[in-house]
Design a protein around this nucleic acid. Structure first.
Lengths: 302, 302
DNA sequence: ATGACGCATTTGTCTAGGACAAACATCTGG
DNA sequence: CCAGATGTTTGTCCTAGACAAATGCGTCAT
């Protein structure tokens, strides 16, 4: 009967809401209303944690916290789009993402990998990335937002797709032609699929990619660029990354890099970021490829 | 002349020290001593951030904060082991990690991958994991601690090694024989190499591994175990994970899982964790393999 | 000499409420 | 219909105190 309780640190971990925010909401909006343990510390019932997760999801969709927190439970639940009419897509053309997504929904990891490998073989890597992986990632993001995808389903998708892309990249000849491109992301940005997609495209074009994974402290990015004699530092920001931090981060990093090193930033997170001096914003994969072409024209092999 | 300053959030990102700790140290030990900006908020000079990073590294090596913070700068620097006599390992068997590590140090990613692929081909996957990857990971951890590895070098190593392991795993036939094993880690635990190593070994033994990546909220692990009808949930904790949190996490997760589902925990982080009801602690890769054998004996195929 | 126990100190995390600036929405005038 | 001013919302930072868990150390017994 006694369902599990969570302390404030656990709730921060599980919901992504900071301790400061959790305390502030309690004070300001009267929710959550944790119990107190023997030491007077907050102890959150599982049900409230669940509701907080829902609220966080709705916030990520653009809803305002004030509204959501004032809302009674049932109204809140009504707001969360369940599974907005299975969208019986006409399986129109050749590439229907729904088909492979269904495999993830059925928790059929092997089936998913098989299906994707077939597509890769059929389409070739470039089209596979642009016409299959990218839309799929988009769809998964949407599904996650409207609640029709569980967290662990999204994780499974991400993990398996990472493997596919890395495998495909490994099969390419080590590019020694184009610029040396250092690929990474800043701390607190752990999404890696975007980086892998551009790495696949750049490698395919013969560029030399240096993948450093995610979450590099800014100072280390600077050091790495020097050590690897990188021509370009490319960062990825997901839609989930707090957008207001991006300009500051880019500016700070720009100062840490040699002026001859180009700084590129891409991913869903830069969509609404204002352009700034010394930084190339890449809004789509096509723009990324175009930027590579431009760089090559500006730096003829000598 | 005006070297860059960092606000408290940036320092938390770059050093891994929480805001609470930064303020507490200032209050208690008189270091750091950030300036204040126009709004009365802390503004840390780059030099202090650098020193904080050093202190954090020494703490991870086992030094006590109180001592380090009372120490003058020069004494502190002297304490940081430069490169403590390369441990001239007797190169006992056939596999000397130093050789491939040097390639990382030279930032030769391609060379590293080639060398490792050769070893994989020569040794076979099991020996490759146990006799090459595992010791290598250990050595990199040590090198990182004593400062002879930069952060970005460690990232490069991790990224490339991840690729190698994933590639090797993908080449294996999808195991349909043994138990269904769900592999993941808890939030705040982002180290994935350990998971990949056991996945390689388990897959090799024909078990059906479900890799969910890292950082799964506990409740989601519970849901995923149900959805995938997992027989075993295996978690990995790195040495860097705060050990005091582990027993609580395991206990909480144990409550979320069906009693028939086994809970295994491994990795360097569980070394000093006390054994507890309903949880199997696996201290080495060999123990993990033994646990798999045990499970199979206890669950004969029917 | 070595291992176990208990006490003292160290150290991180929690608590409280106040303040403020940046982000956002809404209203007003061109 | 767009631009700019005004008001509201909301997250982060601040101070300062309390306490428990982890760690180190001294004592005692074997």
């Amino acid at each position: 009967m006694n369902s599990p309780h969570f302390n404030i640190a656990a709730v921060e971990r599980d919901t992504g809401l900071s301790k400061d925010v959790l305390r502030m909401w309690e004070r300001r909006y009267g929710f959550p209303t944790p119990e107190r343990d023997g030491n007077g510390e907050r102890s959150y019932p599982a049900a409230q944690v669940e509701r907080l997760r829902l609220i966080k999801r709705l916030m990520d969709m653009g809803h305002r916290p004030g509204k959501l927190l004032a809302m009674p439970a049932d109204e809140l639940a009504a707001l969360a789009p369940r599974r907005p009419a299975p969208t019986a897509r006409p399986t129109s053309g050749s590439e229907d993402p729904g088909e492979v997504l269904a495999l993830i929904k059925q928790h059929d990891g092997h089936g998913y990998q098989q299906a994707m490998l077939q597509r890769l073989a059929r389409q070739g890597l470039q089209s596979f990335v642009q016409d299959t992986v990218a839309p799929l990632t988009q769809r998964v993001g949407e599904a996650w937002e409207d609640g029709s995808f569980e967290v662990f389903e999204e994780h499974l998708f991400t993990e398996l797709t990472k493997r596919l892309l890395r495998q495909a990249i490994a099969a390419l000849p080590g590019g020694a032609g184009g610029p040396r491109i250092l690929l990474t992301s800043v701390p607190d940005e752990s999404h890696v699929l975007g980086l892998l997609m551009v790495e696949a495209l750049f490698s395919l074009e013969g560029a030399e990619c240096i993948p450093l994974g995610t979450q590099m402290p800014l100072m280390e990015i600077g050091r790495a660029a020097t050590a690897h004699r990188a021509d370009i530092v490319a960062l990825s920001f997901s839609v989930a990354f707090p957008q207001r931090q991006i300009p500051g981060l880019l500016q700070q990093l720009r100062l840490l890099l040699a002026p001859t090193v180009e700084l590129w930033a891409g991913g869903g997170g830069v969509r609404r970021v204002a352009r700034q001096e010394g930084v190339h914003l890449l809004h789509t994969l096509d723009e990324a490829l175009a930027a590579l072409t431009d760089w090559r024209q500006a730096h003829p092999t000598n």
